[in-house]
Design a protein around this nucleic acid. Sequence first.
DNA 1: TTACATTGTGTCACCATAACGCAATGAATA
DNA 2: TATTCATTGCGTTATGGTGACACAATGTAA
Lengths: 256, 256
Amino acid sequence: MEFKKELKDHYSKGHEKYLRHISVDCVIFGFHENDLKVLLLKTKYAGGWALPGGFILKNEHMDASAQRILKERTGLDEIFLEQFHVFGDPDRSTKKINQQFLKNIGVKADISWMFERFVTIGYYALVDFTKVTPSPDNISAACEWFSIYQLPEMILDHHHIFDEALQNLRMQLNFHPVGFNLLGKKFTMPELQKLYETILGKELDRRNFQRKMLATGILKRLDETKKGVAHKAPFYYKFDLRNYKKALKSGMHSFE
Amino acid sequence: MEFKKELKDHYSKGHEKYLRHISVDCVIFGFHENDLKVLLLKTKYAGGWALPGGFILKNEHMDASAQRILKERTGLDEIFLEQFHVFGDPDRSTKKINQQFLKNIGVKADISWMFERFVTIGYYALVDFTKVTPSPDNISAACEWFSIYQLPEMILDHHHIFDEALQNLRMQLNFHPVGFNLLGKKFTMPELQKLYETILGKELDRRNFQRKMLATGILKRLDETKKGVAHKAPFYYKFDLRNYKKALKSGMHSFE
DNA sequence: TTACATTGTGTCACCATAACGCAATGAATA
DNA sequence: TATTCATTGCGTTATGGTGACACAATGTAA
C-alpha cells in the first residue's frame, strides 16, 4: 500500500517534477548467445510489454534523462546512447490504455498529467549483455530480454518504435563501428561476425568480413587464441580504442 | 495596439492552445542564383535573426505543426520536411533573452509559459526558392533569405541547429535524390550540378557527375535545349518521379 | 594416426569511381 | 561569312573496393 501511494503520487503530481507532454523511450540492445536481444518491461496494470521509458526532469538534460532511465533498468553507467527519432502522432498514446491503467491504480484520469498527450523521444542503446542486471520499475512486474526475432505483444506504438530503432542501428552499422558497446573486452572474429550478422539479419562471407574488419584498423589481434574449442582455435581480438573513436567520428565503409 | 494585445494573449495564454515545453524549429533551404539559402526571421523584440519556429497544437500531429509553420512563412503546401534532431539542453533557451522579450511586450515573465524551458524538434525543409513568398510572423520585423555562407547573428542556439541541419542534408544527399524539392520542373545538368556543389560545399567533376546522375535513372532528358546561352546549349532534364520516389526509399550511391 | 570442421590467408573477376581526353555545339567575334 | 572559344556530351583508363571462391594450416575428436 505504501508502494501504491508512491505510485499514485507519481501519477497525480508527477507534472510538478517532469516536463509535461514529453517522454523518453529506450530501445536497449544486447548481444548474447549469437542473438540480438532487447530489454522489455512487463507492465503490471496495462498488460503487454513496454520499452523502458520515463520523463525529463524539469532541469535535466534530455540525454541525461535517457542515461538515468537506462541506469535504473540495467545498472549501467555511461551507456552508448543515440537519439534516433521523435514520435509525434497525437494518437500514439491512446487514451484507452491510460484510462484503464489509471483506474487500476486509483487515480482519476482527468486529473493526471499522464492522461495528456505525449510526444516521445526515441533513443537506442547498445550494452554489454553480461553486465546488465535487469530491474523492473514501479509499474512493472518483470524486466526481461527478448530476441528481436521473437518479440512479445507490446503496448501502444512501442513495436513501431522498436522497428525504427533497429532500422537506425542497421544504418549506423554501415558507417560506424558498433561492437565495442555490445561485446566484452576480447572476442574472436567469428563472434564479431555473428554480431554483425544478427544485427543485419543476413549472413556474411567469413573471409571478406575478416578482411574488411581488419582493414578498418579498429582491431588489435592478441597473441592469445581461444581455448577448449573443437577444431582450429581462433585468435582473440580487442578494439583499438584510438582508431575506434576516430572511426566513430569519420565513418567507415559499408557491409555487403 | 490591437496587435500587441493579440501578442500578449499569445504569450500569457498560449499554453491553453499548445503543448508546453515543446517547440518546432525549421531550417528552410532554398536554391537561387547558384547559392544555397536559408529563410530567417528578424525578431522585433529580442534582436538577432531566428529560424522560423512555432509550437504544436494540443491535438495536432507534430509533423503537421512543422508543415503549418512552413506554410505560414513561405505560402507553400506539402513541403519536403525531415525531422533531423531534438535539442534538449535545459539551458538552450536562456532565460535572459526570453525575459527581455517578454518585458518588451508587457508580459510578466513568471506568468508566461514562454518563460519555461523548451525542448525543440529540428526539421529541415527543401523548397523551390522561386515559389516562396516570405512573410514574417507577429513577433518578427522581417523574413529574408540568407546565403548559408553569410549568415547573420542568430538568437539562442539557432546557429547550432542550422549547422546540424546542414550536416544532415549533406548526409541525405549521399543516399537520396534531393533536387526535386529545390529546383523547378526542368533544369539543365550544370544547374543540378551547381545545386549539389553548393550543398556539399565543394566542386565536383562535371563529366563524372553527369554519368552518375544519369546512371541513377531518376532523370529524363527532354528534347529541348536551353536557349539564349553563349556556347553550346545544354539539354533540359526533368525528374522521373517514379524512379525518383523509388530512390528516395531504397537509397542511392554517394557523391565523391 | 587419421578425419574433419573451422580458421587464416590469398586469388581473381567485376564494378564503381576519379581523373582526364576529345569532338561537337553555337553564340560571339573578326 | 569564317573563325574563335567556352561549354557540353560522350568516351577511355587506372585504381581500389567488393563478392565469390580456393587452399593450406590448425587442433580436437574419432
